[in-house]
C-alpha cells in the first residue's frame, strides 16, 4: 500500500508546514517552500492542513502506485501524466494500483506539490514529518527520494464526497517577474538612505544560487552605514539578509536558525510563494508595506482558501449535464475494472 519511486527527479522530498519548537536547539524549520500551493493540494482532498506531501523541484519524479488512492497536484506545471495520459492539476484524481505517475521538468514555476488522501506513512519526528536534509532528520530517512525508495500509506483510500466538484482553476506560474511586498526591518537602520532607496527602487535578478536554504539575488550594491555584520540572531522565513557584498539573500525553508548579517527587510508571507516559484534570471522588485498590511493580506489569503474549501464541497454543476457526468464516470469505471 503505497508507491515506489522509479525515478527520483532532481530534489523530491517529503514536506509539511515545518518543524517549529526546536529552533532554539539549532534545528531548522524546513517544510514546504510554497505554503499556498501545499495548502491547496491538501484542501482539494480534505486532508488536514498540515498533512505531509511531496515537494518536487525543477525535474520531477516517476512514481508507481502499489495501491489505490486519491491525489491532488498543485504548484508549477511539470506536465504530469498518468500511464502516459495528461493528468489534470488542481483536481482530485483517482489513482489505481499499478498506475504510473510521471512528471517532466518544470514548464512553469519551479516547485510542485502532490498530496495523498491515504496519508504518507512517514514517522513524526519532533512534531513534524518534514525532511531536514542537513540534520538527516524527519521525512523519508532524512533525505531526498532516490530510485527504488518505497513510501507506504497510513490508511486505505478514503471516500470523498462531491468528487466531481474537486477542481479549482490552476494558478498562474508563467510570470518571469515578481513584486515582493516586504516589511522593513529588523536591521534596516544599518543601511544608508541610498541603500534603502536602491533596495526598494531597483530591479534584482534571481541567480543560480537558489535552493531550499535561500535565494541569492544579483543587482545594484545596497550600501550600509558601517558594514553589515551583526551579533548573530534568529532568522525568520523570508528574511532578506544583505552581507558585505551588498546583494540580498532571501532566507527560505531550510535556512539556518541564526545568522550574522543585517536583515534589511522580510518578505510578506503571502508573497514568498511568488519568489520560490521563480527561476534563475527572473526579475524581482521589492515594495515596502506595514506589518499590519502584511497580516491583513495573510488573513485574506486564509479566507480565500476557506472559500476554495466551500467551492469543492458543493454539488458539481456538471452533474446537471448528463454527457459530462457520463464522461467522468466512464473513466472511473475503466480504472475500477483493472
Amino acid at each position: 500500500m503505497g508507491f515506489r519511486v522509479l525515478k527520483p527527479g532532481m530534489l523530491t522530498t517529503v514536506q509539511d508546514l515545518g518543524r517549529y519548537g526546536y529552533q532554539s536547539q539549532g534545528i531548522s524549520v524546513s517544510g514546504v517552500m510554497d505554503v499556498r500551493s501545499f495548502k491547496i493540494a491538501n484542501l482539494l482532498i480534505d486532508n488536514p492542513e498540515n498533512e505531509a506531501c511531496l515537494e518536487i523541484t525543477l525535474i520531477g519524479p516517476t512514481l508507481e502506485f502499489t495501491s489505490a488512492t486519491i491525489i491532488a497536484i498543485t504548484g508549477g506545471d511539470f506536465s504530469p501524466t498518468i500511464n502516459g495520459k495528461p493528468a489534470p492539476m488542481y483536481t482530485a484524481i483517482y489513482m489505481n494500483k499499478g498506475d504510473i505517475l510521471k512528471f517532466a521538468s518544470a514548464r512553469t514555476g519551479s516547485r510542485c506539490y502532490v498530496a495523498f488522501s491515504s496519508y504518507l506513512d512517514i514517522p513524526v519526528v519532533m512534531g513534524s514529518r518534514c525532511t531536514n536534509m542537513k540534520s538527516i532528520t524527519g521525512g523519508f530517512k532524512g533525505r531526498k527520494l532516490q530510485a527504488d525508495d518505497y513510501i507506504g500509506f497510513r490508511i486505505k483510500r478514503r471516500y470523498l464526497p462531491f468528487f466531481l466538484s474537486r477542481t479549482l482553476p490552476p494558478e498562474d506560474f508563467t510570470k518571469e517577474f515578481a513584486e515582493l511586498r516586504v516589511i522593513m526591518g529588523p536591521q534596516s537602520d544599518m543601511f544608508t538612505k541610498q541603500g534603502i532607496d536602491t533596495f526598494l527602487g531597483e530591479e534584482f535578478t534571481v541567480t543560480s544560487e537558489f535552493d531550499r536554504m535561500g535565494c541569492r539575488l544579483d543587482g545594484p550594491f545596497i550600501s550600509t552605514k558601517n558594514g553589515s555584520d551583526i551579533i548573530s540572531d534568529g532568522i525568520a522565513f523570508g528574511a532578506v539578509q544583505v552581507p558585505a557584498h551588498g546583494k540580498p539573500i532571501i532566507m527560505l525553508a531550510d535556512r539556518q536558525t541564526t545568522g550574522g548579517y543585517a536583515k534589511i527587510a522580510t518578505v510578506a508571507s503571502v508573497d514568498i510563494p511568488k519568489l520560490v516559484q521563480r527561476k534563475t534570471d527572473h526579475k524581482i522588485r521589492f515594495r515596502a508595506i506595514t506589518v499590519e498590511e502584511a497580516q491583513k493580506l495573510y488573513l485574506s489569503e486564509l479566507e480565500e482558501l476557506g472559500g476554495m474549501r466551500k467551492i469543492i464541497h458543493q454539488p458539481c454543476k456538471e452533474v446537471l449535464d448528463c454527457r459530462l457526468v457520463a464522461k467522468r464516470l466512464t473513466t472511473l469505471f475503466v480504472k475500477e475494472e483493472e
Binding site: 516589511i183 526591518g185 529588523p186 534568529g234 525568520a236 522565513f237 522580510t266 518578505v267 506589518v291 502584511a294
Partner: peptide
C-alpha cells in the same frame, strides 16, 4: 522590532 508578519525580534 518586526521581522516580517510572523516574527518579532526583541533586542
Amino acid at each position: 522590532l518586526t521581522e516580517g508578519d510572523s516574527s518579532i525580534l526583541i533586542v
